[in-house]
């Protein structure tokens, strides 16, 4: 009887469910995947499937100073944003999880609120804010604006990491004679490393990709890669977009795999 049930169960969950899952997966994945063959096509028109195969589009990208400048700016902004998010987000998470102070819950809610606000609203808010405060450095505006939205993600991943660390480990280190800084750097931080790296990669990816906020707050002469792609699709539909998209996809996939690998190595998750 159990054999029968097992058999019929395998019949259903063995084919139908994975089959459906595959279809949905293909449907979701196809738009991203389709640009890959396109990117190896002709330098003059976007076409699927491409008539001829070449690296022309990649060559075009790497020979275009404007595209390279945009990519370089995006990279710089993403790195700075990640650094700021970590520097502020990790200690904030530590205070929120380990600390005991009045208004703790509200502060946590406040720090995570950018996640809850629609990007377009945050973008408008930041635009007005920069106008009022007179912060005018193009790159600085991008870094500050993007940090506001990436920091909550660093805080969330760090907080969940911290909750998995036994507070007795820190207590043990303290009683053994370690000062608060020693405890943080020798015990907490090494144990939190997988969460921090995960949060950092995520922050990097988000800030590298971000369009809405960057569009609102960037000034003339500070065009990030996604903004340039966006305007390019509006005005010229350059086939080089396919090559850039392929490269961005590759970076995303590599980063996501890295996060997955780190988290699997982490014994606690």
């Amino acid at each position: 009887m159990s054999m029968e049930r097992g058999g019929s169960k395998r019949g259903f969950s063995g084919w139908v469910v994975p089959g459906l899952a595959c279809l949905v997966f293909v449907f979701l994945l196809l738009p991203s995947v389709i640009v890959i063959p396109v990117s190896f096509g002709d330098a003059h028109e976007m076409m699927f499937p491409p008539k001829t195969w070449s690296f022309d589009l990649y060559r075009q990208f790497f020979n275009d100073a404007e595209w390279l400048a945009a990519a370089w700016l995006s990279l710089r902004v993403a790195l700075w944003t990640t650094a700021i998010s970590l520097l502020l987000g990790v200690p904030a998470a530590y205070g929120l999880v380990r600390g005991r102070f009045p208004g703790q819950r509200w502060l946590g809610l406040f720090l995570l609120s950018p996640i809850m606000v629609p990007a377009i609203v945050a973008a408008l808010g930041l635009y007005i804010y920069f106008l009022k405060t007179g912060i005018s450095g193009g790159e600085l505006r991008l870094v500050l604006g993007l940090s506001v939205v990436t920091m909550p993600f660093v805080i969330v991943t760090s907080m969940s990491g911290l909750r998995h660390i036994d507070p007795n480990l820190e207590a043990a280190a303290t009683i053994m004679g370690a000062g608060p800084l020693t405890v943080f750097f020798r015990v907490t931080l090494p144990l939190l490393k997988p969460s921090i790296i995960g949060g950092a990669l995520f922050a990097f990816l988000m800030s590298f990709d971000e369009v809405t906020i960057a569009w609102f707050i960037s000034r003339a002469g500070y065009t990030t890669l996604p903004i340039k792609m966006f305007s390019s699709i509006q005005w010229e539909i350059s086939p080089v977009l396919a090559a850039i998209s392929t490269m961005l996809t590759l970076i995303s996939v590599v980063i996501c795999l890295a996060v997955a690998k780190i988290q699997r190595r982490d014994p606690k998750s």
């Binding site: 207590a171 043990a172 303290t174 053994m176």
Partner: peptide
């Protein structure tokens, strides 16, 4: 605690 020169053993080993 750090200055009390004590040792502590926890149930969770720590």
């Amino acid at each position: 605690s750090a200055k009390r020169e004590l040792g502590m053993v926890f149930q969770s080993y720590a």
